[in-house]
Simulated assay, not measured.
Amino acid sequence: MSTNSTTTDTSTFVCTLQTCSLDYAMIHYIPSLAGNALFLALFCVAAVIHLFLGVWHRTTSYLVAVMGGLLLEIIGYAGRISLHDDPFSFNAFLQYLICLTLAPAFICAAIYLCFGRVVIEYDARCSRLAPATYSKVFIACDLVCLILQSAGGAITSTAGTDNTSLRDLGIDIMIAGLACQVVSLVAFMALAGDFALRLRRHHAQGSASLLPVDWHAGWKWRGFLIGLIVATTTIFIRSCFRVAELKGGFGSALANDQVAFMILEGVMMILACGVMTAFHPGLVLSRERWNASAQQQLKLHQVESRSSQIEMIQRSGV
């Protein structure tokens, strides 16, 4: 006797909160609607402010880099909000995973663009690299990180939920991209710290600065520098967390710890984008300074420095 009439077809079965345990979900908890909506709103506000400031101050390269990161953050948290309603959605899971993994690389690119200009504003002679080299080298490193993370995300998305070996390969490639980002940030922080020490030593020895130092004593400039330090540190902390999170796999305790994710991913990136919004480079650097080439910026500062020194001599002689 045939049993086809009583056989259950499971090929089209879809899990819901009413029919399946969260153990079968993409993440083993229901993402906080309030927390993720708050992060989404904050990133949207930052995006609107950056768009206005970027257009007003014409800091095009900075605007493109930061907006790329902010848009990915917005899309990623929209995915997490979708997971609140359907934690079994593979598409929403990939949306959040890939977008939030890629976003910090764009913010890092903005930091590198700023630091090259900071080197010129102080004293390029104290830097081990030419000012323009910082953005070229480290943005190239970011590009490699993005390619690895994107490739890993693409492999993970095509693997689906059944092909675990292919999905694990995608995760490993994403981890490699994140690890490269951590190494790149460590190298950048080492060079930035070295520049600060060499600059201090240079000035302590009484060497003449190329720059009008008094201009850099204002709170806006100090806030800008502190903002870059805070953004770099928080992104570094976040990147270390994501490497550890993905290394254990999607089923690990860390990958399913919502509090750790909200603090070490969400709060860290909110802080990074927040300080880069509050202390936008357009508030301290003129349009000409930002958009000029490295050589043009250096020449501009040398002229300003000489003018400032002549003015000080004239005042002292009065």
Rank of each mutant, 00 (worst) to 15 (best):
F43V: 01
L228T: 10
L51F: 07
T3E: 11
G76T: 00
S184P: 11
F39I: 03
V64N: 01
F106E: 08
C145H: 01
F224A: 01
L71P: 00
A37W: 00
V66S: 12
A130L: 11
L40N: 08
T233L: 14
T10H: 15
M268R: 04
D162R: 10
G170H: 03
F279P: 03
H57E: 14
S127G: 09
G69F: 02
G251A: 09
Y112R: 03
C273T: 15
F279Q: 06
T6H: 11
S89L: 06
F138M: 04
A41T: 12
L148T: 00
G68D: 09
L283W: 11
L191H: 04
G68I: 02
A294V: 09
G79T: 07
D142F: 02
M269G: 02
V182L: 10
L300K: 06
R315I: 04
S135C: 11
A179T: 15
V183Q: 05
I173Q: 06
Y122D: 07
C273A: 13
S308T: 05
I175G: 11
Y29R: 01
A179W: 11
L143T: 15
S184Q: 07
I111E: 14
A272K: 09
R306K: 15
F138K: 08
R128T: 14
A253H: 13
S150V: 03
G116D: 07
K220M: 14
L100A: 02
T16S: 14
H28Q: 15
L102W: 03
R242H: 05
V243S: 10
V267A: 10
C99W: 03
D194Q: 14
S293W: 05
I175Y: 06
T10G: 08
S209L: 15
V183C: 11
E265D: 15
G69T: 04
M67V: 00
I111C: 06
D257W: 04
C141R: 08
M268N: 03
Y134L: 06
C99A: 15
V137R: 07
D194Y: 03
M26I: 11
V118E: 05
A292R: 09
S32E: 09
I74E: 07
L264S: 05
A187K: 00
F106K: 03
G218P: 04
T6I: 13
G251K: 12
G266W: 01
Q149T: 01
F241R: 04
G282H: 03
K136L: 14
E73W: 00
R287N: 13
E265F: 05
E245L: 06
S316E: 12
C114F: 04
I226A: 14
C20G: 12
F52I: 07
A46N: 07
F39S: 09
R238D: 13
S127I: 11
V230H: 01
Y96D: 07
F224Q: 01
Y29I: 05
T6W: 10
S11K: 11
L228E: 04
T232Q: 00
G249F: 01
I270K: 00
S82N: 13
M269P: 08
A244Y: 05
F115H: 00
M174G: 15
G35C: 09
L271N: 03
V186W: 01
V118S: 02
T10N: 15
E73P: 02
L148W: 06
A65S: 08
K136H: 12
S252Y: 00
Q18S: 15
F106W: 12
M189L: 12
L191A: 13
G177D: 05
L225P: 02
V119G: 06
L285T: 04
N4F: 12
T156N: 13
L129R: 08
